[in-house]
């Protein structure tokens, strides 16, 4: 028996669990420092999960992109355009059409990003920087910078404002996207093709993987996830505005990298990215509850992100 346990302990590879260790550390730290300030109250914990839902959904898509050694900087602008398109379509059509219209903003942009990256052979960093500007411009143009309110109660309930028992629908959507994303990532040939493409493109191609198709697919997945996040923002805020998602790109990338996905591709986890996103949410929430000023919050958040990322990247290097 003792032998069995010691074997288990020896076999335990902590490197796979770095993100959980970071998560535990941040949770422990805030639980101690904020024990009488409501950090651990169920409402506050649900707040964190709800507020991070949009980042989490985008992080799932970004995990695929970064695992394939690409990046998608256009997600912030897709959030805004998808939310606006869904809100506008909702004025004259039903929920299903509105959601499809919103998602198609992501699908079209993602396909475009992917095709330019794989066929014209421009780095995704530059392609998505360009499309990001185009999409932002469109989002500003279609409503002449005005907000579009949403009065459809069912839409608002399903996509952001509703609760089923004590559980926010936003959290349920995060769970659904996480489970689907995780299954596709770990259990399908496509998931393995993504990792192979990111790990070593030439080797992947020689082993029969159509790396160009994989690239188009990952860019589309990340853009569709962003479009869905836009729909969730619209449901949460009961309306859309061209400024939605503006500041989200860096948070999403940080969440994915803290979650253990290698920035150079070939390695990652979907669940880790969600945990990374929740760590970012806990930081925002905890630093606010501590009563820090915005400047102090920014400094603390920056330092903790660097520490968390360096931990996960250093362990990755040692693999």
């Amino acid at each position: 028996m003792d032998n069995f346990i010691s074997k288990k302990i020896k076999g335990f590879n902590y490197k796979n669990y770095i993100v959980y260790i970071s998560f535990g550390l941040v949770l422990l730290f805030f639980s101690i420092t904020l024990f009488n300030k409501g950090f651990l109250s169920p409402e506050n914990l649900m707040n964190i999960l709800r507020q991070t839902a949009m980042i989490s959904v985008m992080a799932v898509g970004m995990t695929f992109t970064i695992s394939a050694a690409e990046i998608d900087l256009s997600i912030g602008s897709i959030v805004a355009l998808s939310a606006l398109v869904a809100a506008l379509v909702l004025r004259s059509a039903g929920i299903i059409l509105a959601v499809l219209a919103g998602l198609s903003v992501g699908a079209v942009t993602g396909l475009l990003n992917g095709i330019i990256v794989s066929k014209v052979r421009i780095p995704s960093f530059l392609v998505t920087l360009g499309t990001s500007s185009i999409i932002s411009g469109l989002a500003r143009k279609i409503t002449n910078l005005e907000a579009v309110p949403i009065i459809d109660k069912r839409f608002n309930f399903i996509f952001g404002s509703g609760d089923i028992g004590p559980i926010s629908t936003l959290f349920l959507w995060t769970l659904v996207i996480m489970i689907v994303g995780d299954l596709v990532y770990r259990k399908t040939p496509f998931g393995r093709a993504v990792l192979a493409t990111g790990g070593n493109k030439s080797a992947a191609r020689f082993s029969g993987i159509r790396t160009d198709a994989v690239k188009v697919a990952v860019m589309t997945i990340s853009a569709v996830c962003a479009a869905f996040a836009g729909i969730l923002y619209a449901g949460r805020l009961h309306g859309a505005r061209y400024t939605l998602g503006e500041a989200d790109v860096m948070t999403v990338i940080a969440a994915v990298v803290i979650g253990g996905t290698s920035f150079t591709g070939g390695r990652g986890t979907v669940v880790g990215s969600i945990i990374g996103s929740i760590i970012m949410g806990m930081l925002n929430n905890g630093l606010l509850l501590m009563g820090l000023s915005v400047s102090d919050q920014m400094i603390a958040r920056g330092i903790i992100i660097i520490l968390a990322v360096s931990l996960s990247l250093r362990e990755a290097k040692n693999d």
Partner: peptide, 11 residues
Amino acid sequence: TGEVASTILTQ
């Protein structure tokens, strides 16, 4: 501000 508001409501 959403995060700010929710922490205020908590406390």
